[in-house]
Amino acid sequence: MIKLLPTLTIIAAIGSGVVGGVFFAFSNFVMAALARLPVPQGIAAMNSINITVITPTFMTALFGTGLVCLVLIAGAIIGWSQPGSFWLLAGALIYLVGNPIVTIVFNVPLNDALAAVDPDSTNGAALWANHLSQWVMWNHVRTVTAIVAMACFIFALL
């Protein structure tokens, strides 16, 4: 397993970078653009994104990188005396907590609530305003942790 760690670390760095880039785009301009739309259109657009994002490619990047991180955690602990083990463990933990876990615990429930609301209702407008602040805040967490994890994986390889 120790021999596979460099390859898995490269895969984790690429996966973290891809995921961080997607979340970076949402944090920096996609959500701002949706916020400029009338409430029903913003909700409809976000609901559409939430459906179309569920693709094998993106799910592999997000959750497949998480699976690789589980292997990297084991490898870092087993090979703790090896150079870069600290960075490997740090990157894997940061990615797992900041991306798959934050997504499942915070972002997905916010998306589910948005999908269940009538976009034309007063409740829809209130939920959309909350979504724009809370979802984006948690997306910032995902963005930063994916980028920090990628940096840790690169440090582990150096």
Rank of each mutant, 00 (worst) to 15 (best):
T103G: 06
W80N: 13
T122Q: 11
L89P: 09
N99I: 10
I77M: 15
Y95S: 08
I101K: 02
T103P: 05
V97D: 01
F106W: 13
L96H: 09
L88F: 11
I78S: 12
I94S: 02
F106E: 05
V102Y: 12
A115R: 03
S85D: 06
D120P: 00
P83H: 08
F86S: 04
A90Y: 04
I94K: 04
N123V: 00
I77H: 09
D118N: 12
I78P: 02
A90L: 09
A76R: 10
D118S: 03
G98I: 08
V108K: 05
D120E: 05
G91L: 09
N123F: 00
P109G: 07
L93Y: 05
L96M: 14
P119V: 06
L88P: 10
G84K: 03
A76Q: 13
A115V: 00
Q82H: 14
G98E: 04
L89K: 11
T103M: 08
A92T: 07
N99G: 05
G91S: 08
N107M: 08
I78N: 13
N99F: 13
A90K: 02
I77C: 09
L88R: 15
L93N: 04
S81N: 15
A116F: 01
D112E: 10
Q82Y: 12
G79I: 03
P83L: 03
F86D: 01
V108Y: 12
V102N: 06
L88M: 15
S85K: 14
D118A: 01
P100A: 10
N99K: 06
S81Q: 15
L93I: 10
L114V: 00
S121W: 03
F86Y: 08
A113V: 00
D120H: 12
D120G: 10
Y95V: 09
V117A: 02
L96V: 05
T103I: 06
I94D: 01
G98S: 09
F86A: 05
L88K: 14
G98H: 13
G91E: 08
V102W: 11
V108E: 10
F86M: 05
S85A: 15
L88T: 07
A76S: 15
L88A: 11
V102P: 06
S85Q: 10
L110C: 01
I101V: 15
A116D: 02
P83D: 04
L96T: 06
L89S: 10
N123S: 02
G84I: 00
V105P: 02
A90G: 02
L110T: 01
F106P: 00
L88C: 13
G79Q: 14
A113F: 00
S121D: 01
V105R: 07
V102H: 12
V97I: 14
P83Q: 07
P100W: 13
D118Y: 04
G84Y: 06
V108F: 12
T103K: 10
D120Y: 07
L89D: 08
A115G: 03
